[in-house]
Every structure is written in structure tokens, then in C-alpha cells.
Design a binder for these strands. Structure first.
Length: 482
RNA sequence: GGUGGCGUAGCCAAGCGGUAAGGCGGAGGUCUGCAAAACCUCUAUGCACCGGUUCAAAUCCGGUCGCCACCUCCA
């Protein structure tokens, strides 16, 4: 069974075949580091992370690059727009680069807390101005772009495929009539490769002016530098399709005369309470704000990852509660396996091996299909139920347990949840002496069949963050809370 | 106005022509001193609506309604 992806460029689901067998070159549109990342940003980043994790699960080596945009971009009609980072810089009275550094640190902290694998490199736009200038120079020299009044524009009439990604062909765009006429542009839809604006705080010398790069050129320059002239996968949010990625294709392919990207994958936007997230509606949440409400990163991660990337995801706090309960179920199962594991015998031939093999095959079949995480998770929960049933039967031996645990951890690794479930901490963490004493007292009370005292002690332990569960083989405990 | 996409149970969400996965919530049950955990049973005669194609449609086609996104900084 091949892996397939829905390619925005062809608007079809296609078999995934990287340029070089076994190796995937992937570029992800990353954060703009001038504000706190919101949960919608991280839906997109977590989609990229899940994609990488699954490709690695399937045996590919993934070369992942995610850019950090630290140059603000001014809108095409320069007098109407204002650069966000400049606004931040003025209001906070610091240099733009200081702001970028501060928010980059915040971004990386969240990457770590939400358990994203680190990309090979996180190139910054401001570190690649010379590369961008070189590309623009060539585009001008080859007649794909023209300089006027200190700025450089790409001439879209020189790239006939312009519009193929988004469907916004020049003719249709002209018919749309929302295009403002810019006096320097030959065609209203020509886009800037270099800009001149004396008011802009960030400026670099160039052959055309002391100015700053256009919005799209950074991705072309940095993806080529680290991944080569043709990428296997380029991801981003759906809002990037036009104009950002459309323009990237035009400038990149004009520059190299080669296909720029083989598979374009776009994540749909996140809705909150069924509506577009916006500060004015009061439904805008940064990642930090959600975590501050007492939700564990794994719960946010699960909520953001558990819907397919091509479907709109409706985020609600109810969905986080739902995630919490669902994860507890998986966590309980894993803890049960971890505790039952008494030896490392090879996997048994029997029921456990069959359950694990069935689940693995179904998981792969689901995920191969355009990264269908809903099917993947459905398989995981079926597997949890089947595994629990087997353990309930009491016939599972060490080899069986090992087989189940290996399969489970494989799935959890793809979802970035391995090691984040809390079960490990619970069994490994040293018990406070007072808690240990309370547990011993409760065992004594139970032996005396003093149920009143036992229940009281259980309540006291619960208040201390320990949940006690009595079973046939004695009592066990786990920690709860974020 | 142009472009791309979506409407499946109380909520979230699979399904890609062969008779509705999974999670949450709810109801009942087994186990347990009681709980918890786990397991079992039930919870959509129907997939926005109306037509059409087909032996067969949630799945294909046409239309209607509703929703989202992009076309302007935005994942």
C-alpha cells in the first residue's frame, strides 16, 4: 500500500514518491516571531510534526526545515499598511530584532513543551538577505523581474503557470476587480521581490535601494539553501496558498527552471466555538493561555492533532476535556502493561501478537491515506480495548505484554504522546514519606476491614494528588493533575 | 464578484459505489467492601434539502440552502 497525499497543486490525492528514495525533503512555513503563537499556528506546526513523525515511522529519513520569519512584511499598497513588527517595536520601544529573539525563544519553549521534534534547521529571514538578493538579481537579469524606483517586482506575465496552485489565474484576478492599481507595476498582480520604504525600521543595502525583501522571497532562498532546488513536501496553513505559495512557485521555478515542490500540503484553519478566531470576538487563544488554564500540553496536543489536517478543526474547551478523558484511558492501559511487564521474552505467537499485528496493519492503512489520524486513532482505541480484554482474561504472559507495549508505543510515538502520558512519572517518582505512610495506613485499615478508615485515607490521598485503586493483587496508586 | 473547500448521532469525527469506525457524553450490566480502573450491552432505518445515474449512493451527477477559507498582514 502506497502512502498518498492530497496535493493542493493537482487537487488530487497522489501516491507519495520522494525524489530520492527513502529520503524526504520537507519545508514548513513557520512562525512569524513578533507575537505569541496562537493555537491555530500550532495546529499547523503540529500537523507538520505529525507528518514528519509518520514518515519516520514508515522508515523515511526526513530532512525538515522550518523558517522563522523575523522580517515584517508590508502590504502591497504601501501607504495603507503598517508592518506588525514595527508597530510592536514602537509600542515596546525596543529594536525589531530584540522582539524577534524574544518571541523565537517563546516559540522554541512551546515546541519543547508540546513535544515537537526539532527540525534540522530553523533558518531566519534576516540571516539570509544576501541569498535573497542574489536570487532577485538573477531574476532581473533574466527578465523575470524589473526594478523601478528602488523596488523590484516579479512580472507574472513571464510565468504562464501563475495561478495554477490557487486557481487565481491572472484573468480571473483581473475579473475580480479588487486589485488596486500600483503606479510602478506593469501588471497589478506583479508582486514585490524587493521593497523600498524609508520609514521601514529594518533595512539592508541592495543594488536597488536600501530596503527590505518582499514577502515571498525568503522561503525560496532558504528552502533552496538547505534542501535543494526541488522539495518533496511544502506545508503551510491554507491562507498561504494565495498569494504566498503561488508567488513562491513563480519566482522559484523561474529561477531554477525546475519544479519547486512535488507535494503541496495545506492545513485548514482552526475555528474556535465554530467561528474564526479573532481578538474582537473574544475567542482568540495563545498556546500559553490554554496551558495557563490548567490543561496539560498533551491534552492540547491531542485536541489539535486528532482531526484530519484537511478538515476544519473546531476547537472548544469541551474538546480539551474530551481529550483529557480519552488520554487517561490510553494512559491507564499503558500503565497496566508497564506494570505487568516482568520479562523481555520474545513476543508470543498467540492472541497478543495477533492483536498487535492487526492493529499495526490497520494503523498503517489508515495513516497511509493522506495522514488520516482519525482512522489511526480509531485503531489505537480498538487496540486498547482488545489489549485490556486480553489482560482481563489473565492469560497474558511477559511476551504478550511486551508485544502489546511495543505496538502501543509505536502508535504513541507517531502522535508525539510517548513519554507524555504521565504513567511513567507516577511509577518512577519517589513517593513522599507522608504519602507512603498514608498508603500503609490504608492497607492496614483494609486488612482490618475498617472500611470507614480506609475510605477516609483514600480521600486524604486524593486531596494530595494520589488516586488509589484496589484490585485483586492489592492496591496501586497514580498521580493526577497537570 | 472570483477561487478552493465543507455540511454524518447531544458534542468531536471516520467513511472515497455494496448496506453507518472511533472518542467524549448518556443509559443499563459484570467485577469490587465501596469506589476507581477495565470489560459487556444499548445510544443515527439514516448521513443539510430536492432531483438524477445505478441492481446498489453518505459516497457519482445536477440544483437549492447553510457554513468556512483565500483573493489584504494572518497557520
Amino acid at each position: 500500500m502506497p502512502i498518498t497525499f492530497y496535493n493542493t497543486y493537482t487537487k488530487r490525492e497522489e501516491e507519495f514518491l520522494p525524489l530520492e528514495p527513502g529520503k524526504v525533503r520537507m519545508y514548513n512555513c513557520g512562525p512569524t516571531v513578533y507575537s505569541h503563537p496562537h493555537i491555530g499556528n500550532f495546529r499547523s506546526f503540529l500537523f507538520a510534526d505529525t507528518l514528519r513523525r509518520y514518515l519516520e515511522y514508515r522508515g523515511f529519513e526526513v530532512l525538515q526545515v522550518m523558517n522563522l520569519t523575523d522580517v515584517g512584511h508590508i502590504r502591497a499598497d504601501a501607504d495603507a499598511g503598517e508592518d506588525k513588527m514595527e508597530v510592536a517595536a514602537r509600542s515596546e520601544k525596543v529594536r525589531p530584532l530584540d522582539i524577534a529573539n524574544r518571541y523565537a525563544d517563546i516559540f522554541f519553549d512551546l515546541v519543547a513543551r508540546l513535544g515537537l521534534r526539532r527540525a534540522m534547521v530553523y533558518p531566519r529571514a534576516t540571516d539570509h538577505i544576501p541569498e535573497m538578493i542574489r536570487i532577485v538579481e538573477r531574476l532581473v537579469a533574466d527578465g523575470f523581474a524589473y526594478a523601478v524606483n528602488g523596488a523590484v517586482y516579479f512580472d507574472i506575465t513571464r510565468f504562464p503557470a501563475y495561478g495554477r496552485l490557487s486557481g487565481n489565474t491572472p484573468e480571473q484576478l483581473d475579473a475580480g476587480s479588487r486589485v488596486e492599481i500600483h503606479p510602478d507595476k506593469k501588471n497589478p498582480r506583479d508582486f514585490a521581490l524587493w521593497k523600498f520604504d524609508p520609514q521601514h525600521l529594518m533595512q539592508w543595502p541592495s543594488p536597488w535601494s536600501s530596503g527590505f525583501p518582499g514577502w515571498h522571497i525568503e522561503c525560496t532562498a532558504m528552502s533552496m539553501k538547505y534542501l535543494g532546488e526541488t522539495l518533496d513536501i511544502h506545508t503551510g496553513g491554507e491562507d498561504n496558498i494565495f498569494p504566498h505559495h503561488e508567488c513562491e512557485i513563480a519566482q522559484s521555478e523561474s529561477y531554477t527552471k525546475k519544479p519547486f515542490v512535488r507535494y503541496w500540503l495545506h492545513a485548514r484553519h482552526l475555528l474556535v466555538d465554530g467561528e474564526k478566531m479573532s481578538k474582537s470576538k473574544g475567542n482568540f487563544y495563545t498556546v500559553q493561555q490554554v496551558l495557563d488554564k490548567g490543561f496539560h500540553p498533551r491534552e492540547l496536543r491531542y485536541a489539535l492533532v486528532s482531526a484530519n489536517y484537511r478538515e476544519p478543526l473546531n476547537f472548544t474547551f469541551e474538546s480539551l476535556e474530551s481529550a483529557r478523558v480519552a488520554l487517561e484511558r490510553v494512559s491507564n492501559f499503558r500503565r497496566r502493561l508497564a506494570e505487568a511487564r516482568t520479562g523481555a521474552q520474545p513476543a508470543a505467537e498467540g492472541e497478543a501478537a495477533r492483536i498487535a499485528a492487526t492493529a499495526r496493519a490497520a494503523f498503517q492503512a489508515g495513516m497511509d491515506h493522506d495522514l488520516n489520524v482519525s482512522r489511526g486513532l480509531g485503531v489505537v482505541f480498538d487496540f486498547v480495548r482488545d489489549g485490556n480484554r486480553l489482560l482481563d482474561g489473565g492469560a497474558a504472559g511477559p511476551g504478550d505484554v511486551a508485544a502489546l507495549l511495543a505496538a502501543l508505543d509505536g502508535f504513541l510515538e507517531v502522535f508525539g504522546l510517548a513519554g507524555m502520558l504521565g504513567a511513567e512519572e507516577a511509577s518512577a517518582a519517589a513517593l513522599a514519606p507522608e504519602d507512603a505512610q498514608l498508603l500503609r495506613d490504608r492497607e492496614d485499615a483494609r486488612r482490618r476491614k475498617d472500611w470507614k478508615a480506609a475510605d477516609e485515607l483514600r480521600a486524604r490521598l486524593r486531596a494530595r494528588g494520589l488516586v488509589v485503586e484496589d484490585g485483586a493483587g492489592g492496591s496501586r496508586w497514580k498521580r493526577v493533575g497537570p
